[in-house]
């Protein structure tokens, strides 16, 4: 008998590919990235170029060094680089951004085996590392219109109208200040079925609910900081979030709750990235808990035991 996979059905494939998925994500990130570049000027463009090119270069060299099949054509490193760049303040020194990007690709993604094998979101983890390493530079922003440097955002004292927050006329990181552009991108991902809206919506929903219960300004809290970007693009990451639907919902809820707790009771003004990474660590357990029941499968031994107990109790 011949048993090579060549001789086994199916013989057709859908047109989906990893490259195409990543291209969709890049397209979805584009409006917010462009808005950031327009708001903050040349240095922001340079910063994004540095994070993307360092991400690509570090993936290329790492895989070449360890003699692994090259994977930059799948565009996942481009996505990581761009997403990281978008969570950085516009005037960050370029070398600091480069360090963050190398860390994201090498230490978070490639060391664990590359695409699909990392347990935490590379961009979020790298941003956390940079916040710790370059505390001072990571907390200086610039007002888009006047160019005045500020160390306060709407999360820790500055004030802005909802409209400014929604359109992005506030100080903040490059890619996160226009909620409108981020939502447009996210909508594109959901409509093309590239990503599921379950985790983002449950994250934003649970956060909004807690904020309302806590008596805070709900729209301002939702539109400020990295929350929108993180919720729309990082909680919907394939690799580091649960694959099951109910798992995605739990994951999003967890992110929303943790973000609320960190923002209001923690030492940092923004909490979504920490929340995402913490939930990333819980992903395998959430997935195990929310496994779908196979069609017609016999009950698991635990369930059978439970049923027997119930029967006994009934008798």
């Amino acid at each position: 008998m011949k048993h090579s996979t060549e001789t086994v059905s199916p013989y057709i494939r859908s047109s989906a590919s990893v490259q195409r998925i990543m291209l969709c994500v890049l397209a979805a990130l584009a409006p917010a990235a462009l808005a950031g570049c327009m708001n903050f000027g040349f240095h922001a463009v340079l910063l994004l170029a540095v994070t993307v090119s360092t991400a690509l270069a570090s993936e290329l060299f790492f895989r070449a060094f360890f003699r692994k099949r090259q994977s930059i054509h799948d565009l996942s490193a481009t996505v990581t680089g761009l997403l990281l760049g978008m969570t950085l303040p516009p005037d960050l020194p370029l070398w600091e951004a480069a360090i963050g990007s190398v860390f994201a690709i090498v230490a978070v993604k490639q060391v664990f085996g590359g695409i699909g094998k990392n347990f935490a979101n590379p961009a979020a983890t790298a941003n956390i590392l940079m916040t710790v390493l370059f505390m001072k530079d990571m907390t200086v922003w610039r007002l888009p219109m006047t160019g005045e440097a500020v160390t306060q955002t709407t999360l820790n004292g500055a004030s802005a109208t909802y409209w400014d927050l929604f359109l992005g006329n506030t100080a903040g990181n490059i890619g996160e200040n226009s909620a409108l552009c981020i939502l447009l991108g996210a909508l594109f991902l959901w409509l093309t079925r590239t990503a599921s809206p379950i985790a983002p919506l449950s994250c934003l929903g649970s956060f909004a609910l807690l904020t309302a219960i806590g008596g805070y300004d709900v729209p301002a809290q939702l539109l400020s900081g990295t929350l929108m970007l993180g919720a729309c693009f990082m909680t919907a990451d394939y690799t580091t979030a649960p694959v099951t639907r109910s798992g995605k919902c739990i994951f999003g809820l967890g992110c929303g709750v943790l973000t609320f707790l960190i923002r209001h009771f923690g030492g940092y003004p923004e909490g979504i990235l920490f929340a995402v990474v913490i939930m990333n660590l819980l992903t395998p357990y959430i997935e195990k808990l929310t496994r779908p029941q196979p069609f017609g499968a016999a009950d698991s031994p635990q369930k059978q035991k439970k049923r027997r107990k119930k029967k006994r109790a009934a008798v």
């Binding site: 060549e6 013989y11 057709i12 494939r13 989906a16 990893v18 998925i21 994977s71 799948d74 996942s76 085996g113 590359g114 695409i115 699909g116 094998k117 394939y238 690799t239 694959v243 099951t244 496994r291 779908p292 029941q293 196979p294 069609f295 017609g296």
Partner: peptide, 29 residues
């Protein structure tokens, strides 16, 4: 009778998108 050979596509690493699970009629993973 098809033009395309099966070997024309190359496998790459799983990205855990979960699509296989979503289409499985038997709800397997």
């Amino acid at each position: 009778a098809m033009r395309r050979a099966k070997s024309s596509v190359r496998e790459s690493a799983c990205i855990r998108c979960g699509r296989c699970m979503e289409v499985c009629p038997m709800n397997l993973m």
